[in-house]
Design a protein around this nucleic acid. Structure first.
Length: 763
DNA sequence: GTAGGGTTAG
């Protein structure tokens, strides 16, 4: 079939007029051919139905049908219609079908049954079916009906495509968009404004914003709706500057903006944090006489809140005659974002009505405020309130699980999603990979990665990072080279993952190579974090001088992470002189950095320089600097337990400490010697032993040994780096108690099994 | 006798 399609050749190759194979090879066409069948015989009951309709009983039924509100009522009416024979009237049948397809309460399964019973469905009925599936967000089902319709010899009209395309998700738009566009052209419908706007929307959904723009440009008449469609298309592709430019163009073309125009433009200002422009638009809106208007006011509140002007957002909110759930959510999210999380919570509790978006905004607020347990707690309350979480919600709670290292809760979330039919879309998939990686369950992370159909740079970055910190550096680098074979490009964060893989594995040469190919091959200029990785890589591998040289030659000012990396390596390599230099720079940049003091004193202590240790301690006291207390989390039965060193606040404390004592004996029997070289205090040997005995991770592990069945992996999350003694002790525990233990510390994972650690003592 | 554009969250 050759199609007379006037279209630019280089832009849309699959259906330009030169490609006449298109319709014969496509999936849709194959389906259409497969389904093609002779049309059903014409109905023979039209006369009868005319006769039936006139009975008084049927008149009554028809008027009840007109007022019908629920499916239950509809089904009753339907059965009566069958009894009286009214069902044979095509008009009344159609009314039943329309109800199912267009009403909120309508059911598409029932619609399909009705439709299949229709002797002669016409184009209106086919459109109704398509519209019904579309409204319920079943694009695939809508397309199938469309295909069936073509196979039965019907020709779509200018209603068909807007209905069909309305529900298109990104996947559907990518897969079928071009082909359906070709159909619209073939049927001569593409110049219809409704069809064209539907196509513009569809292309901006599939990411082909330039194609959308081309449709827009090629239109002879552009009304406000078309401008709006194009502006929101740019919003959808996150090209906010283009949205604003287009709005300017609309003004120049003297097309009067509608409320929707302003809502879209304000959204563009909000998301690009363009407060000044937003405020100007605010002025224009005031003059337009469109206010008060709930939706515009909501957009204004959102714009001010996102741009950080909470005073103005709050003023607007308070001045509103009516507020809806969107207005409330915008201020709650605004306060949460600006750091006033408790105020946000207070408002949240006052909300007259909360939907899943409001709950999600609150959950995300807690996550951003690093209050992860509260994020999980409010998710629980959300379920009590019987509000159904969606994909967005799950991303938030999974992030909380990731930070807490709460694998059990994370697993529960995944089951929950399965049971509640929450899809693993690309965002949820990425969040799951991150959660599993940060909980040390890299196998599960890989499972998710492998089942994802679509992967973006965040997907690849998450899995590369996950493998890198879990001691599977080679696989991380393998996946990175696989990533380079796809169309997804790495960004600066991906390279942090790649470089940390090299650091953890001590792959100095490879790391150097990646560092330079990042610049030469991908045009990514290294930032201070990349230099931090490079310094870490060199220093940890013992090339301290070279690391220092790198710092001195950096094109930007080194930050505390960079000096911290050098200082940390000095601890491993016991280089006091270099440590002093690094600490000096570090404290100059960040005088409050308690980790620097602690590291320096650790190094002095290791080298037996007790006078120096005392000096550092004195300095800390003089300056009022306190060591961040070590803190370890362990999850048991879905509850996260928290321990700090020497902690006795846990209800099971007595049992934990006696377990700890027993552990000490067992470990010593197996050859473990406490390594007190890093103890911060200059005290007697016995006290030092106690000091390391009571480190938070040992408490958490003792608790894990008591409360978790044998065979269950003990997983602990620690806020600081593990000390040498704990690392050594846990290796012994894994052998003596035959337990797999996973500890996530500040920088990486340690998987202990059979007396060995996945980090090969290189951390 | 049906329809097109929009806002709050990752």
């Amino acid at each position: 079939m050759r199609l007379p399609i006037p279209w630019k050749k280089n832009r849309l190759p699959p259906f330009t007029c030169t490609n006449h194979l298109y319709f014969t090879t496509s999936n849709l066409t194959r389906l259409i051919t497969m389904l093609s069948s002779p049309p059903p015989p014409p109905s023979s009951n039209s006369l009868a139905s005319t006769h039936l309709q006139s009975s008084p009983q049927n008149h009554q039924l028809i008027s009840i049908l007109e007022q019908c509100r629920t499916m239950k009522e509809l089904k009753q009416i339907h059965s009566q219609m069958i009894r009286t024979g009214l069902i044979r009237s095509p008009v009344e049948r159609r009314r039943l079908l329309s109800f199912c397809c267009t009403q909120q309460s309508g059911e598409m399964d029932y619609a399909r049954l009705l439709f299949d019973e229709m002797p002669n469905p016409d184009l209106f009925d086919w459109n109704s079916m398509i519209r019904g599936y579309s409204n319920r967000h079943f694009p695939e089902a809508a397309v199938l009906v469309y295909v069936e319709m073509l196979a039965r010899g019907f020709v779509p009209d200018d209603y068909t495509f807007p209905f069909l395309l309305k529900a298109f998700t990104r996947d559907a738009a990518v897969e079928l968009g071009d082909e359906l566009h070709a159909h619209a052209l073939k049927f001569g419908l593409s110049s219809n404004a409704h069809v064209r706007n539907a196509l513009i929307r569809m292309y901006s959904t599939s990411g082909e914003i330039d194609t959308a723009r081309e449709l827009f440009e090629r239109s002879s008449k552009r009304d406000a709706v078309m401008w709006n469609a194009m502006i929101s298309g740019y919003n959808r592709s996150k090209q906010f500057v283009e949205s604003l430019k287009l709005f300017e163009g609309m003004m120049k073309a003297s097309v009067p903006p509608t409320p929707v125009t302003y809502i879209s433009v304000l959204s563009a200002c909000a998301r690009s944090k363009h407060l000044e422009y937003g405020a100007r638009i605010h002025g224009v809106i005031k003059e337009s006489g469109m206010l008060p208007n709930l939706k515009i006011e909501n957009a204004l509140i959102d714009m001010y809140a996102e741009c950080g002007d909470m005073d103005e957002a709050w003023r607007l909110f308070e001045g509103m005659k009516v507020q809806d759930v969107i207005s409330w959510t915008a201020v709650v999210a605004g306060f949460a974002d600006s750091g006033e999380i408790d105020r946000a919570r207070m408002l949240f509790d006052q909300m007259p009505e909360r939907d899943s978006i409001s709950w999600t905004a609150m959950i995300d607020g807690y996550v951003r405020a690093s209050r992860f347990k509260e994020a999980l707690e409010i998710f629980r309350v959300m379920q009590v309130a019987n509000v159904r979480p969606d994909e967005f919600t799950m991303v938030g709670v999974l992030a909380a699980c990731a930070q807490l290292g709460a694998l059990g809760v994370g697993e529960w979330m995944r089951l929950y999603m399965e049971r509640n039919k929450i899809r693993i879309d690309i965002f949820v998939g990425n969040a799951l990979i991150d959660m599993y990686s940060k909980c040390g369950s890299v196998e599960r992370a890989l499972e998710i990665f492998n089942m994802m159909h679509r992967r973006d740079k965040y997907t690849w970055t998450a899995i590369i990072m996950g493998l890198a910190v879990n001691g599977r550096e080679e696989e991380a680098l393998d996946l990175f080279s696989k990533m380079l074979g796809t169309s997804v490009r790495p960004d600066e964060i991906t390279y942090i993952g790649v470089l940390s893989a090299c650091t953890h594995a001590g792959l100095v040469d490879e790391g150097r190579e990646f560092f330079s190919s990042m610049i030469t091959e991908h045009g990514i200029m290294p930032n201070v974090a990349h230099y931090g990785c490079l310094v870490d890589l060199l220093a940890r591998a013992g090339q301290l001088e070279e690391a220092l040289e790198t710092i001195n030659n950096m094109p930007m000012k080194p930050n505390s992470t960079v000096w911290g990396a050098l200082l940390g390596a000095c601890r491993i390599h016991r280089d006091v002189e270099m440590a002093e230099l690094a600490a000096e720079h570090l404290l100059e940049l960040d005088p409050e950095n308690n980790a620097a003091y602690v590291l320096l004193s650790n190094i002095y202590a290791k080298c037996g320089k007790w006078d120096e240790v005392r000096k550092v301690r004195q300095m800390m006291m003089d300056r009022g600097i306190k060591k961040t207390p070590g803190c370890s989390l362990i999850e048991v039965n879905g509850e996260v337990h928290e321990f700090v060193a020497g902690d006795r606040s846990h209800p099971g404390s007595d049992r934990i400490y006696s377990k700890l004592e027993e552990m000490g004996k067992e470990l010593k029997f197996a050859g473990y010697v406490p390594d007190t070289s890093e103890v911060f205090l200059d005290v007697g040997e016995e006290e030092k032993e106690n000091a390391v005995y009571w480190h938070s991770e040992k408490l958490a592990i003792a608790f894990g040994l008591i409360s978790l069945q044998s065979g269950v992996i003990i997983r602990v999350v620690k806020n600081l780096r593990m000390c040498f003694d704990c690392h050594n002790a846990v290796q012994f525990v894994s052998a003596v108690y035959d337990r797999e233990i996973v500890v996530r510390d500040r920088t990486r994972f340690h998987h202990f099994r059979g007396g060995l650690c996945s980090c090969n003592d290189y951390w």
